[in-house]
């Protein structure tokens, strides 16, 4: 049971390509791998713990005000993440700028709370939240690997494409500047969706 809750969101029901949730705050941070990984980690933690906390509270929240309660819990967790990032990873926190705050409005979090945490026990909710966060993280990391490798020739800031291949050093290779620009993230994501749908072959 728990294993299925964990594995489903990673591949079969991945929140981004299959359900089209949580694209909002995702793509602007995928120019480089490092901020994308930090973002993926933050979203995973926030999704997991907000699901768990709201699942603990699920029998005490009146239905009418549940959206406000959810927003408050999520916003509190995001403030924690933001303060921790500011304290221990100032450089990355500067690069992510407003996108840490935008985790609050990430549709994955609200979606999982509404669809799962309000009807399930705390532990499965935690697993479900973490797994959905990870599913989101996988897509984020895949997009950013492609963009950083083709756009700057590096991964995590280390040079991957050998220096002597470049035109400047007498080679034939040139970085593709198009991949640094925001629209390429959407096009890569479109291709990922294509692969996912072709593999699942259930959506037409």
């Amino acid at each position: 049971m728990n294993k299925r809750i964990f594995l489903d969101p990673l591949f079969k029901n991945n929140p981004i390509p299959v359900l089209a949730l949580g694209i909002c705050s995702a793509l602007a941070v995928t120019v480089k791998l490092e901020p994308a990984m930090v973002m993926a980690l933050s979203v995973t933690l926030v999704t997991g713990f907000s699901s768990m906390i709201l699942s603990l509270l699920r029998n005490t929240i009146p239905n009418r005000i549940r959206i406000i309660v959810q927003l408050v819990v999520v916003a509190t967790l995001v403030i924690l993440v933001d303060q921790v990032l500011k304290a221990f990873a100032w450089e990355i926190s500067k690069q992510l700028s407003v996108f840490v705050g935008l985790i609050i409005t990430n549709c994955i979090i609200m979606g999982r709370i509404e669809a799962f945490a309000l009807y399930n026990k705390p532990f499965p909710s935690l697993v479900d939240g973490l797994a959905n966060g990870l599913g989101y993280g996988i897509i984020l990391i895949a997009v950013s690997v492609v963009r950083e490798l083709l756009g700057s020739g590096t991964l995590m800031g280390y040079q991957v494409i050998p220096q002597q291949w470049y035109v400047a050093n007498g080679g034939v290779y040139e970085n593709n500047g198009l991949f640094i620009l925001p629209p390429m993230a959407l096009i890569i994501l479109g291709l990922i969706v294509w692969v996912f749908n072709a593999k699942n072959a259930k959506r037409v």
């Binding site: 089209a20 479109g190 294509w194 037409v204």
Partner: peptide, 14 residues
Amino acid sequence: APMRGLGIAFIITG
């Protein structure tokens, strides 16, 4: 077929 809907919407937005 697998591109219909979401996939093509992403690419057009790009």
